[in-house]
Each structure stands twice: as structure tokens, then as C-alpha cells.
């Protein structure tokens, strides 16, 4: 029999754990945007060594599963004498992993802009900085919003992987709940509901932003 009582009781602790899920995803995407922007800038720069570094960064991080990256990072840091909290290691790893995808999102959006957009700005004598900040980036950001929200949703789900380094986020918390209640099905369905709820909210946010920036 499916126990509605256990199902509903699971929500309390799981919601509590969801703050870690959200924290890791949001900080992760924040860090990912910062690093991803730098990587994208390197990728589009006129300097071959920078371009090569960025290309390697992207293909390496996209080629190794996040779970493996997490484990490597988590166990490598103490080796080089850094003792960081699991939470920091998790956010940094998620952020670095996301940076590879985000840099590609930027690059795609920038490449999608017609060449004439920048040309019109160059032709009236704008500086390269103005061309980027006034013409290219505002449009690239708008173009990439759906993909960025999509990336955030992927991160919320991927953040379940950080349970392996001992952070009590939704997945890890539900494992604990399942073990104490002996009702895994109810608990995991509750966990699924919370993930779904978060991501439906994010998707709605995405649609709102898209609508607001549409011209």
C-alpha cells in the first residue's frame, strides 16, 4: 500500500534539503556564467594560444561526466594541500562544468547575429568595446536566455550528483529518509515532485524573461 502519510511527511525534510540543491545550482550557474564568459572571450580572441586553451577547456569538460569531475576534484584538492568544505568543492565543480556549456551557448548566440549588426556600429565609428557592450552582447544575452534557463534546469538535476561528496541535498536527503522510514517509493516520489516543482518554476521564469525581452 502507498502511504500518503509518509509521502506528505517527506516533504518537510526534503524541502529543507532543497535549499542546498538550489544553492549549488544557482551559485554553480553564476560561477559558470562568469567562467564561461571568459572562456568564450578567449575562444573568440585573436590570440591562438588563448583560443586553443579555451577549446581544450570546453572539450575536456564536456567529455568527462560531472560525477567523475566531482570525485576527481573532491579527492584531488586535499592532495595539493587544499582543505575545502564539500559545499565549496561542489559549487566550484558544478560551476566549472557549466562554464563549458555556457561558453558554447554564448558563442552560438554571438555567431547567430548577422554580421551587419556589428558592421553598422563599426561604420559610424563605435569603439570595439561599444560594439560589444551596446550591440552584440545585449542581443546575444536575449538570444541565449532560453538556453541558459535550460542549462540551469540541467544543473538542478545534475546537483543530485553532489550527494556523493556528502552534501545533504534533495537526493541524499531522500536516501536518508527512505532508510529510516523503510518507505522508499513514497519518499522518492516526493523527491521527484520537488525536483519537478523547482524546474517548472524555472521554466516559467524562462518564459517570462523571454517574453519580457522579446522585441
Amino acid at each position: 500500500m502507498f502511504s500518503l502519510a509518509v509521502f506528505f511527511q517527506s516533504f518537510g525534510p526534503l524541502f529543507w534539503a532543497a535549499r542546498y540543491t538550489l544553492l549549488i545550482s544557482v551559485l554553480g550557474i553564476g560561477l559558470g556564467v562568469v567562467i564561461g564568459t571568459l572562456i568564450c572571450a578567449a575562444r573568440l580572441s585573436p590570440y591562438p594560444p588563448l583560443r586553443r586553451f579555451a577549446a581544450i577547456w570546453v572539450s575536456f569538460l564536456r567529455g568527462v561526466p560531472l560525477l567523475v569531475q566531482l570525485l576527481v576534484f573532491y579527492y584531488a584538492l586535499p592532495v595539493i594541500g587544499l582543505d575545502v568544505p564539500a559545499m565549496v568543492a561542489a559549487v566550484v565543480t558544478v560551476g566549472i562544468c557549466a562554464s563549458a556549456y555556457i561558453s558554447e551557448i554564448w558563442r552560438g548566440a554571438i555567431a547567430a547575429l548577422p554580421k551587419g549588426q556589428a558592421e553598422a556600429a563599426v561604420a559610424i565609428g563605435m569603439t570595439p568595446v561599444d560594439v560589444w557592450t551596446r550591440v552584440i552582447l545585449p542581443q546575444a544575452v536575449t538570444l541565449s536566455l532560453p538556453a541558459l534557463i535550460n542549462e540551469l534546469i540541467l544543473l538542478v538535476k545534475a546537483s543530485s550528483l553532489v550527494s556523493v561528496v556528502g552534501i545533504l541535498e534533495i537526493t541524499r536527503a531522500s536516501q536518508a529518509q527512505a532508510a529510516t522510514t523503510f518507505r522508499p517509493l513514497e519518499v522518492y516520489i516526493a523527491a521527484a515532485c520537488i525536483y519537478l516543482l523547482i524546474n517548472l518554476c524555472l521554466a516559467a521564469l524562462g518564459r517570462y524573461l523571454e517574453h519580457r525581452t522579446a522585441v
Binding site: E119, I124, V215
Partner: peptide, 29 residues
């Protein structure tokens, strides 16, 4: 850039900036 300031250019595809209004397009430069 100084020399380009006094040379206007009009393109086949207009190349207006879509995120700006008509007035903002004109005022930007």
C-alpha cells in the same frame, strides 16, 4: 574611427539594432 564618423553608410539589409527603438538607433551613435 575619427574618419568613419563623417562617412555614413546604409546597407541592403538595413542593419538596424533590433533591441533599440527607432530613436535609440539614431541616438546611439
Amino acid at each position: 574611427r575619427e574618419m568613419r564618423r563623417s562617412i555614413g553608410m546604409v546597407f541592403q539589409q538595413f542593419n538596424l539594432w533590433p533591441h533599440m527603438t527607432a530613436r535609440e538607433n539614431v541616438a546611439e551613435g
